[in-house]
Design a protein around this nucleic acid. Structure first.
Lengths: 208, 208
DNA sequence: GTCTTTCGCTACGAGTCGTAGCGTAACTGG
DNA sequence: CCAGTTACGCTACGACTCGTAGCGAAAGAC
């Protein structure tokens, strides 16, 4: 026994994969997305930009879809939500956080494309979910809990119903921001965020 | 003078374009979308399915993007909204109308893809707007006016503010449905539509 | 040193793109 | 009926991308 130095950690023999190559590839992918967009981005081009052989890309990613998801996912790491003191302020904060990432050219062109591909590829959908969607969703969950602590919205006894409601809120917030930014193609600025917050907090029938 | 028989109407000499070919191409495009999805759909394949030369496609559409927009756009023609008697019922109706189209495999795979392309192509964005987005938006405008007539929501004096608010509502409704159907990849059924309607009508702070 | 894995490089068949050129078909106006 | 004009089907083409295979060399584990 005791043949494994540490379970799974660098236990494999042979030359290890270059971490620098990984970083260079993902960076090159983002740069290529900005310059070329999704459709004109090619694996060969990314390899050249990264100073790496094309075969190296295919050893690590199955194709363009997976590569781009990973390349864009790191941009969502910066998502954080300081406590702004009220539900309305937190909603506005979430909206502006989403928007700040969605307005970058590399996410603009890549996000919808990989979502489109994911409609025919379950594995890709899972990758998007864990790498991007869940990180966004976390903000919504945090904001809701804060509002409950403040007493702005009630706690829910039924856990299943609570989860369903959280999913709903997330789809509304994320969907609205994405639709505004990419389909309507108009800016998600502070003014829009304020209007949206008013609508989502008090509803249609009380908004003037 | 009087050299034009009727202004622009079939006034041009030469062989007219075959309307049947148009219909066959758009139908073939939708079928190919269902079977192959967006990324594996090729112009040559569509031409073969439609029983048409590849060059004929390029004479009418600049490329895959424009072709698919037109092919999918006709699906949005069926959008209608019977008066269901209340704001809540109308919202639910709009949601289910959107969903019924978005759940079709050809729209699922195509819509996000062309939106992604449109982020780098202004002409394409305009085409999407007039062929698809505006048709959806109409339902929202109709629903709002009905609610105003019923007295459920107030009229707005400021026209600019009124338009801004309508845009907001549209992005929220359409965005939420799209996000639920394509990103979260879960069904937009009557239950979800009811939950969404409750949220959008009365707001977060009054929802249990 | 030996084993194992990764790396860069080259080369390849397969497939797609968008266009050009040709002869033919269809419709208009004199 | 006869030009003139436009659309059509067909073929062929160079350019490009794809994803893979094969090679020798490099890098770490034992």
């Amino acid at each position: 026994m005791c043949s494994e130095p540490s379970p799974g950690r660098t236990a494999r023999p042979g030359r290890p994969r270059s971490a620098e190559a990984d970083a260079a590839i993902l960076l090159a992918t983002r740069q290529a997305l900005v310059e070329l967009g999704w459709s004109k981005l090619t694996m060969g081009d990314v390899a050249t930009r990264a100073g790496v052989a094309k075969t190296t890309l295919y050893r690590r990613w199955a194709g363009k879809n997976e590569l781009v998801v990973d390349a864009v996912a790191v941009l969502f790491d910066e998502l954080e939500l300081p406590d702004l003191g009220s539900l309305a302020a937190d909603v506005e904060g979430v909206v502006l956080q989403f928007a700040s990432i969605l307005q970058r050219p590399e996410t603009k062109t890549a996000l919808m494309a990989v979502v489109a591909e994911s409609t025919r590829d379950d594995a890709l959908r899972g990758r998007i979910r864990s790498a991007i969607v869940d990180r966004q969703k976390r903000l919504v969950l945090i904001g809701r809990e804060r509002a409950q602590v403040r007493g702005e919205i009630p706690y829910e006894a039924d856990a299943a119903l609570s989860a369903r409601h959280a999913d709903l809120i997330f789809d509304v917030v994320a969907g609205a921001v994405v639709h505004r930014a990419l389909v309507s193609a108009e800016p998600v600025d502070r003014e829009w965020a304020r209007d949206f917050t008013a609508l989502i907090c008090t509803g249609l029938q009380t908004t003037t």
